[in-house]
Each structure stands twice: as C-alpha cells, then as structure tokens.
C-alpha cells in the first residue's frame, strides 16, 4: 500500500493542493481523475520525489521514498520525448534494467531475453529493431509499458496512458495492468476523460486541488461527486443511460 500523508505542493507560493491524504491499495488498479489543472500530474510527481513538496510524507509498505525508489516504474506522458533519438525499441525497453544494475554493470544475456519477452507481451516483438520515431502513439505507449515490465516494480504509476492510442494498444496495456494486479502490485493510473472509468479501475481518487473523494469505484464514481468536481451537465450526460455503465 502507498500511503500519502498531509502532502502540500506549491508553485511559487500558490498551493496546488494542501494536506492531501490518500491511500493506494496493493492488488488494485486505482484511477486518479479530476479536471484539467486539478493537480493530477503534480500529485504523481510529488509522490515520486520529482518535484519539491512543502510538507508531507509518502511511504510504500512502510518504507520511505529513498528505500523504495528502485521498486517504482513510472510511465510518463510522452509529449516531451525526443522521437528522433538514435535508439531502437529493444534498447528503450532494455533501459528498464538500468535502475537495478547501477553504475558500471551492463545488462546480461538474461536481461536481454526478458526484454524480448516483455516486447512479446505487448505484441511488439517484430518492432524490436525499429527506431522509436517510426512507431504510432499506441505502439510507443506499449514500448514504455514493456520497459515497466522489465523494471520488476511493485508500484507502477502511469500518467494518461490511454490518450490518443488505438484499441489494440489499449487492450494490450489493460491486459498487462490486469496481470500486475493479479500479482498483487500497486497500480496507479492518471486518467483525463471520464469514459470507461468503471471498466478500467477498481479504486478511484477524485482530485480537484485536494482530494474530493476516494475509495472503490462503485462508491466514489457517483453523480454527486462528478457534479461537484466537474459540472452538472457532464454528470447528467454520463449517468443518463442506466447509471455508471460508462
């Protein structure tokens, strides 16, 4: 379980959120939703120690960030990536071993074998030699999920993994997420649109400059919460035909 206690983040004195407290359960896929600018990515980055926090503690199964850093896989939003970089799909996935290897050690034969297996799991084995700029958005996303497989992490955090990807990629990624869930890992997914919320996630965190609500999807994904966080119109549309089937 990932526990966050009174976490506060501010950019130049304007707080993004104050005293956030939330738990993420092992063996569950937890979605984080909220309007644009609600602080979803900021919360993730703060939990990962990528940005400065004003107050708060983050622990994973009782360990501090420094202690569990090597057990995290973070699949970022890919918008800033240099797609012209001279690297192929295989080598990108292989970088998933770097954290464990540390300085001066090179990936072993076994690592390379696992790398190819991870590529097979996401249906990209035949793309191993492709330069990464030659992939579609969905394929690229699968490459980074394959890298997360190689990291053998217990905590996996994905930032908007389903944005602009094809159905095949979405299915492949969901299959991997389910596999991780069954293995008892903690999975956190930042999600921007409200479709398929109940289909993707077991637990849900609604964020809007602070926690609106969190818990099992059935309890949290309610017309009242959506109306409170987003708008009455959106809530009406989403819950119009037969409740939370979306």
């Amino acid at each position: 379980m990932l526990e966050v206690q009174n976490l506060t983040v501010a950019y130049s004195d304007t707080p993004v959120f104050t005293d956030v407290a939330v738990n993420f359960n092992a063996g569950k896929i937890t979605g984080i939703i909220g309007p644009n600018g609600a602080g979803k990515s900021t919360l993730i980055k703060a939990m990962l120690g990528l940005i400065k926090t004003q107050t708060g503690t983050v622990t994973f199964n009782g360990h501090t960030l420094k202690q569990f850093q090597k057990q995290i896989a973070y699949v970022e939003q890919r918008k800033d990536l240099d797609l012209t970089f001279p690297i192929n799909v295989f080598d990108v996935v292989l970088t998933g071993t770097y954290g464990r290897l540390g300085l001066f050690r090179q990936p072993s034969k076994a690592d390379r074998k696992r790398c190819l297996e991870a590529l097979k799991q996401v249906d990209l084995a035949e793309f191993a030699d492709r330069q990464i700029g030659q992939l579609s958005g969905g394929q690229l996303q699968r490459v980074f999920v394959a890298r997360a497989i190689l990291q053998k992490a217990d905590l996996i955090i994905l930032d908007e993994p389903f944005v602009g990807i094809d159905l095949q990629s979405e299915t492949a990624i969901m299959a991997i997420l389910h596999g991780w869930r069954d293995a008892g890992k903690t999975i956190i997914v930042v999600h921007h649109d409200l479709n398929k919320v109940s289909r993707y996630f077991d637990d849900l965190v609604i964020l809007n400059h602070g926690i609106v609500d969190y818990g099992p999807v059935a309890d949290v994904y309610t017309p009242t919460n959506i109306e409170r966080t987003f708008s009455a119109d959106l809530s009406a549309v989403l819950f119009a035909q037969g409740g939370a089937q979306a």
């Binding site: 896989a73 770097y98 954290g99 300085l103 001066f104």
Partner: peptide, 21 residues
C-alpha cells in the same frame, strides 16, 4: 564506463530520476 547513464540521461532524464539517479 558511463555509456548507460549518458544514454538514459540524454534520452529520458525523468526516467533516470525516478530510479534515483
């Protein structure tokens, strides 16, 4: 000696940061 580290920090520095590099 630092080929791995030069590669990952050039290609994907945030990733290197997440594992504590």
């Amino acid at each position: 000696f630092f080929y791995k580290e030069l590669l990952i920090t050039s290609f994907d520095p945030t990733f290197a940061q997440t594992y504590g590099f």
